[in-house]
Simulated assay, not measured.
Amino acid sequence: MSAMTVHLVGFLTSAGHPATFAATVAGLLGVLSVTGRLLLTGAQRRLRLTRVVAAVFATQGAAAFLLPLAAGTRAGAVAGVVAFGLGFGVASLATPALLAERYGTTAYASIAGTLAAPVTLAKAGAPLGAAALQHTTGAYPPVLAAIGGACLVAAAGMLARTRTPA
């Protein structure tokens, strides 16, 4: 998600859109963060949280893979960003709930604290890795494919988690 946030304007301008349009569409990610949280809250009342999060990650993966094909038009760019952006904000709600569900609340603070460092390093390093990939290939589609692949791996991991006991 952090790589997409950092590289979205660059990708959209490379797809031929004006910088003002690209920045406006990228700004949708903030609005969609709230929308994704609302959808998660409603969906988790009817479905297991792990399945909802897996569906969100799969949607983000599909959006990342399809964005290079759809971003040539304004409508396609907006649709791709909306599909990807719905997952923004989901992690901030889902992570504490999933940790408490999996490990209980007794050691929650210790586990959450232990996870904070590698998660923060990944969030900081992902845009750098994406920049290196974009520089090496000279294009954004491989970056979006890598983002899409990471989202699908996350979705598969969440689905695998639904089958294991707490």
Rank of each mutant, 00 (worst) to 15 (best):
T106C: 05
M158S: 05
T59S: 14
T35S: 13
R102W: 10
A3Q: 00
A166D: 13
L49N: 08
A139P: 00
L152S: 02
G27R: 09
L12S: 01
Y108W: 10
R48E: 14
R37Q: 15
A26K: 02
T50L: 13
A166S: 15
A54K: 01
I111L: 14
A94F: 03
A109N: 05
G129E: 09
R102T: 15
A58K: 00
L133Q: 07
L8T: 01
H17Q: 10
A23K: 02
A154M: 07
A139E: 09
A77H: 01
Y140F: 15
L133S: 05
A154F: 00
A83W: 01
P68T: 06
A91K: 02
A26W: 04
A146P: 00
L29G: 00
S92H: 11
S2W: 15
Y140P: 05
L152I: 07
G76Q: 01
A15W: 04
A112Y: 13
A64M: 03
V6A: 15
A19K: 12
T162D: 11
R161H: 12
A132Q: 09
L67R: 00
F84C: 00
R45I: 12
V52Q: 01
F57I: 01
R51W: 10
R163M: 06
H135V: 10
R46W: 15
L40K: 05
P68N: 09
A26S: 14
A116S: 10
R74K: 11
A91I: 06
P142K: 01
A155K: 01
A145D: 03
A79M: 04
L115E: 05
A26D: 07
Y140D: 08
G30C: 07
P142H: 03
Q134E: 15
F21H: 03
V153M: 10
A116P: 01
A117S: 14
S92M: 13
H7M: 05
L39C: 13
L32V: 08
A107E: 14
F21V: 11
S14T: 11
A109V: 06
T95D: 08
R45V: 14
G129K: 06
M158C: 14
T137M: 12
R46H: 15
A26E: 04
S110G: 09
V119L: 14
R102I: 10
T73G: 09
G157V: 04
